[in-house]
Design a protein around this nucleic acid. Sequence first.
DNA 1: TTGCCGGGTGTTACACTATATCAATTTTTG
DNA 2: CAAAAATTGATATAGTGTAACACCCGGCAA
Lengths: 158, 158
Amino acid sequence: MASFGFRGHDHTACVADRMAAVEAQCAEKKLQLTPIRRRVLELLLEHHKALGAYDILKALEAEGRPAQPPVAYRALDFLTTHGFAHKIERLNAFVACSDPGHGHAPTFLICRDCNTVAEEPGTLSREALAETANLAGFQIEKAVVEAEGVCPLCRDEP
Amino acid sequence: MASFGFRGHDHTACVADRMAAVEAQCAEKKLQLTPIRRRVLELLLEHHKALGAYDILKALEAEGRPAQPPVAYRALDFLTTHGFAHKIERLNAFVACSDPGHGHAPTFLICRDCNTVAEEPGTLSREALAETANLAGFQIEKAVVEAEGVCPLCRDEP
DNA sequence: TTGCCGGGTGTTACACTATATCAATTTTTG
DNA sequence: CAAAAATTGATATAGTGTAACACCCGGCAA
Ligand SMILES: [Zn+2]
Ligand SMILES: [Zn+2]
Ligand SMILES: [Zn+2]
Ligand SMILES: [Zn+2]
């Protein structure tokens, strides 16, 4: 369940499940999951990898709904603000969150060949981080781990 | 010694020490610490915070040595490749490494007010990371933690 | 009803970040 | 010294991200 990003799975069901979960959360929190926001999230889920804002714009244009940069960035801002997606800083790209509602220290395993991103919870120990922060007198608000390497698929098929 | 980025210290000596250490490493490894590379590293050390490539270009111009973007990016590439500096992805900016020769999983404590960056070793447990990677069948080559928050100076003086 | 107010969208224009390319120069090596 | 490799100079361009303003459409108060 953790690393589905790198294993075969029923992708259609995967996307549907996530969309349903996000819809439920939006209903509960009174958030507006507008058509554009919804479509951008679907694109992230369908591709199942990190997409840049301009990749999303290309996709929207390809399906007959051309849009300008602010449209993509606004939708992505909504999604990331509410925890439905994450920005991968190393790639200047975005992925759907694999576990909305998780804690605030996800670990991203980023394949340097295919840009697939797997999100794993809890690599970063809360204690170690707190200890480091206390040592420095620093007040941590959020932390992420970005690990780069090679995913199983790219390792096996060069 | 770890978190000097957020505490008072003899900055002149700090810069001199680091430059000497880097010079020694370059001599040993037969790396060319050219004037530009040297000056860029000095700028990073002097400011003691994350600087963007264009900040560096502005600084170079201010001291009568104007340069074009590739100059800054090439120097920064040299410094990061050899471990003398790090890129902070969250800020699109660069900091001098506080401990050249460290392992490969540094933690950066990034102040969201003043952009000061402190580099701490070892927050990320090697075991936890390896375990996560094995679970996903993923081969990690490098990993960083970027933690955002408020540094002691900014917290005390609003 | 009417008018306001808020969030969301459409659009233009621009700012910031980074790289490709080729020529000129310096340094290293044989 | 001559050839090869590394570094720098300079121009142009690609990629990423925002500011600003007009428009629309919902709810809501006068
Ligand atoms: Zn997540
Ligand atoms: Zn891959
Ligand atoms: Zn370092
Ligand atoms: Zn600060």
